[in-house]
Simulated scan of single mutants.
Amino acid sequence: MNHTAAPSAPRRALVTGASTGIGEATVRLLRAHHWDVVATARRTERLAALAEQTGCTWVAADLQSQADVDRLAAEVLADGPVDAIVNNAGGALGADPVADGSVEEWSTMYERNALAALRVTQAFLPGLRQRGGDLVFLTSTAAHDTYPGGAGYVAAKHAERVIANTLRLELVGEPVRVIEIAPGMVATAEFSMNRFHGDSERAKAVYAGVAEPLVAEDIAECIVWTLERPAHVNIDSLIVRPRAQASNTVVARS
C-alpha cells in the first residue's frame, strides 16, 4: 500500500510597497511559485487589481502611521502566521546637495525607508522568532556608498541597512534569517518620477544611454531566490547592478 505524504502548506509572505515596481513584481513571482501572499501599499485600486490578477490578498496601509501598521499586522495575522516579510516600501525624494537639501524631504525619506521597515519588522518579529521565518530588507546600492545629490536618500538607506545588520547580530541563534537586497539602477515606472516630483525629462535622464538597466522582475527573482534557499542558508547581503553600472557614479552610457 502506497502512502503519499500530505502536501505541505504553502509559505506565506507579506510584501510592502506592492502597488508598483519591485513590490508588485515580487508579489507576482511569489504567487507563480505558489506562495500565499499578502500585498500592502496605500493605493487600494492597484492592490485590488493585483489581487484579481494574481490571487494574492491585500490590506491597504500607510506604513508611516504606527496605527496603520498595528492594524495591518492584526488583519494579516488574523488569517494565520507569516513566514516572510519583504520590506520593500520606500523611495527617494529630490537630488539636492546637502547645502540645499529639504529637511522635510529628508525626514519623509527616513520615514518611508528606515522607519517603515522598522515598524513592520517590529510588528511581525514576535511570530517569526517563535515559528521561524525570514525578514528581507530592500535597500539600495545607496546603502553601501554615496553620490552627489543623493545624501538624503543615502542616509535613509544606510539607516535601513544598519537596522538589518544589527538585527542579524541580535537574533543570532534564533530561527530568523535577515536578508538584505541592494539594487543598483532599476528602471521602474515610478521611482525616478517620484524622486523628481513628476518631471519626466529628469526621470528619463537617469537611464539615458544605459543599454540595459535592471527591471523590477530582475530584483524580484533575487528576492524569491533568497527566500527559497534551504532554511540554514542566509544570504546576508546581495548587491545587484546592471552590467553597465560599476558604482553609484560610474555608468556606461552610449
Score class of each variant (00 low, 15 high):
residue 184 G to M: 04
residue 232 H to R: 05
residue 210 V to P: 09
residue 232 H to N: 04
residue 162 V to Y: 14
residue 174 E to S: 14
residue 149 G to T: 01
residue 188 T to D: 05
residue 181 I to H: 02
residue 192 S to C: 08
residue 230 P to K: 01
residue 140 S to C: 04
residue 163 I to T: 14
residue 198 G to E: 06
residue 157 K to F: 03
residue 232 H to P: 02
residue 215 V to H: 05
residue 142 A to F: 07
residue 172 V to W: 07
residue 170 E to H: 13
residue 134 D to K: 09
residue 162 V to M: 14
residue 132 G to E: 08
residue 167 L to P: 15
residue 139 T to R: 05
residue 156 A to H: 03
residue 196 F to P: 02
residue 180 E to A: 13
residue 210 V to N: 08
residue 203 A to F: 07
residue 211 A to V: 10
residue 132 G to L: 03
residue 138 L to M: 07
residue 157 K to Q: 00
residue 156 A to S: 09
residue 145 D to A: 15
residue 129 R to T: 08
residue 145 D to F: 08
residue 178 V to R: 13
residue 145 D to L: 07
residue 178 V to E: 15
residue 190 E to Y: 13
residue 196 F to C: 07
residue 211 A to C: 04
residue 170 E to V: 12
residue 146 T to Y: 02
residue 207 Y to I: 15
residue 181 I to F: 04
residue 182 A to F: 01
residue 137 F to Y: 15
residue 237 S to E: 12
residue 154 V to S: 06
residue 177 R to D: 09
residue 220 A to P: 07
residue 231 A to K: 00
residue 141 T to I: 15
residue 150 G to H: 06
residue 192 S to A: 15
residue 236 D to P: 11
residue 186 V to I: 06
residue 222 C to T: 08
residue 186 V to C: 09
residue 220 A to V: 06
residue 213 P to Q: 10
residue 140 S to Q: 03
residue 222 C to L: 13
residue 206 V to L: 05
residue 170 E to W: 13
residue 134 D to V: 12
residue 158 H to W: 15
residue 227 L to D: 11
residue 176 V to K: 10
residue 226 T to P: 07
residue 222 C to G: 10
residue 231 A to I: 01
residue 147 Y to T: 02
